[in-house]
Structure formats: structure tokens, C-alpha cells
């Protein structure tokens, strides 16, 4: 049967594959960024578990720490940290760009809009570092 009837050309409709995010690096980057939310959730749960252990008994906390020290957990947490950083950087850049412009009503250079975020981040890191090193 002929597919074409005169004057009724059938357009070709491309379909996206189910694995479209693997097709191109720019899409993969996006998929990884989205996946980073999973690791953020993981850290939240981990913190809750840590707090629960801390509240239960010293032995439980020692067990928790031992578990964290295992090579498997270190690898998992290193990966999770990488994703966590990706997540943080994405939103540190994005949110102020939109919000600053909304407040000021005009475009602002990226350095001005997202700069303060990084300053705050850096500041918080320094304070925490000093705290753990026993300076504070």
C-alpha cells in the first residue's frame, strides 16, 4: 500500500530514545546533576542515622564510626561528596542569578550575583575548620 497520498505528505516524527540522556554529554551532565539530589538525600539520612547513634549509646556510635571507616563506605561517601558539590555549585550559581535579577529588575554579572554564595561557603568552611582544629 502506498504511504503517500498526493498533497498529504506525512511528516517524519522523530522519537526520543528511552536513554536520551546518554546520547550527548550535555544531557548526561544534566542527568548527573539531577541524580545528585539522590546523594543529597543520602547525606541527610546518614546524618540522621549518625544523630540517632549518638543519642543511643557510646557503643552504637563507635559501631557507626567503624562502619564509616570501612573502605566501601569511604568510596561511597567520596562519590556522594562529589555529587553533593555538583549539586551545591549548580544551585549556588543558578538561584541568585534569577533572584537578584528579580529583585533589582536588571541583569547582574555572574560574579556579583553568585559571588556572595561562594564567600559565605568559604567563610563557613573556614569557621568549621578552625572549630575542628580546636582553634575556636
Amino acid at each position: 500500500m502506498p504511504q503517500y497520498t498526493q498533497y498529504q505528505p506525512k511528516a517524519y516524527r522523530p522519537r526520543m530514545s528511552a536513554y536520551w540522556y546518554l546520547d550527548q554529554w550535555r544531557y548526561l551532565r544534566y542527568a548527573l546533576r539531577e541524580a545528585s539530589s539522590f546523594f543529597v538525600a543520602y547525606f541527610c539520612v546518614l546524618t540522621l542515622v549518625q544523630l540517632a547513634a549518638l543519642g543511643t549509646s557510646a557503643t552504637r556510635y563507635a559501631q557507626f564510626e567503624a562502619c564509616m571507616g570501612s573502605p566501601v563506605m569511604i568510596i561511597i561517601n567520596a562519590i556522594a561528596l562529589a555529587f553533593f558539590l555538583l549539586h551545591a555549585i549548580t544551585w549556588f550559581n543558578l538561584v541568585p542569578r534569577v533572584a537578584m535579577r528579580q529583585m533589582l529588575g536588571r541583569p547582574t554579572p555572574d560574579a556579583i550575583s553568585s559571588g556572595p554564595n561562594y564567600l559565605l561557603w568559604f567563610g563557613a568552611t573556614v569557621i568549621l575548620a578552625l572549630f575542628f582544629l580546636g582553634v575556636l
Partner: peptide, 12 residues
């Protein structure tokens, strides 16, 4: 990408 193709490089 993502548009119906009318012919060669022309999309709808």
C-alpha cells in the same frame, strides 16, 4: 531535533 520533519532539512 524534536520537530516533525517535512522534507530533508525543513521542519514543521
Amino acid at each position: 531535533d524534536h520537530f516533525p520533519v517535512v522534507k530533508d532539512l525543513v521542519v514543521d
